[in-house]
Amino acid sequence: MPDATTSPQVYKNAFPTLSGFHFLAQGGYKLVLKVRLEDGKEEVLKIIQLPALGTSQESMAIHSQELGRAMREVTLLKECTCPYVVKVGSMSPELREIEGVQCVVYTEELLPGADLQKVIESGHRPDESECRLLMRCLIEAVQSIWESHGMVHRDIKPLNVFRTGQAECPFVLLDFGIAFNVNEPGLTVRTDQSPPMTRRYKAPEMADPNFRETLDFRTDLYTIGMTVFEYATGGIHPLLPKTGEDARKTITRILTMEPRKLREECPGFSPAFCQLVDSTQSKRRALRPGNLKLILRQLQS
């Protein structure tokens, strides 16, 4: 699989019409690069590795699924009009072979600014109004993909949110790679890789193996709250320590531990906003504030 150390020549060979390959990120079976198109415009190239195509039904299913997943992501991004959702690039999903590895590749718009993870690490401490704005942008993004596509993002976290510095779209949600469509059948589990979801940002209901039967946008509401909490507090997770711990401990905390209260970490913030963020962290979905229009009104007031 190509990675951060892969020579640019490898990419040049695989994508003769692109140039200026610059490594941005890698996670799961995905690699993200900044690239320049023939017209000089810069975009983000996403490369998703597929398992070796054997003759087994599973392997063939994964191939077609990954291509389908990418197509679905692109279709969603194309149709979504919400300004807080990343836009598609000029390359539609297609299969390519890179260093003998089958991959799905496509491009997205290149956003200015940085992801929230980097912003947090830079020591930036936002005020309440910026946190409200972040929450509003993310809620609108989730509302848009849920109401028009029945999609749940499932992987909202600081790394997947961009702070652009642009007034018309100050925060943008990206990476719909593991978005789940409640109107489509479940996906084949890839046994060649660990699950693509970030355990640290997993909603409690996702620990239920039958989560597909009942999944809805309130799972995203939970991770939005978590992201806003981390952003507001300069990187404090509502449940977990800063550094990683083993999977079992993490899941136990997610399922049973009472989350930290935003009010205690940000005493200068208004009680109403703290209460709103804290209420998204309920273990039971019904206890999260599911009326998105009402939340948006509260955030604007």
């Binding site: 009942t214 809805d216 309130r218 039971r284 979905r285 019904a286 599911g290 009326n291």
Partner: peptide
């Protein structure tokens, strides 16, 4: 009870 609550708080036109 919890499943019922999940259902009736997820209404298109509440």
């Amino acid at each position: 009870l919890l499943a019922f609550l999940d259902d009736i708080t997820l209404l298109d036109n509440p």
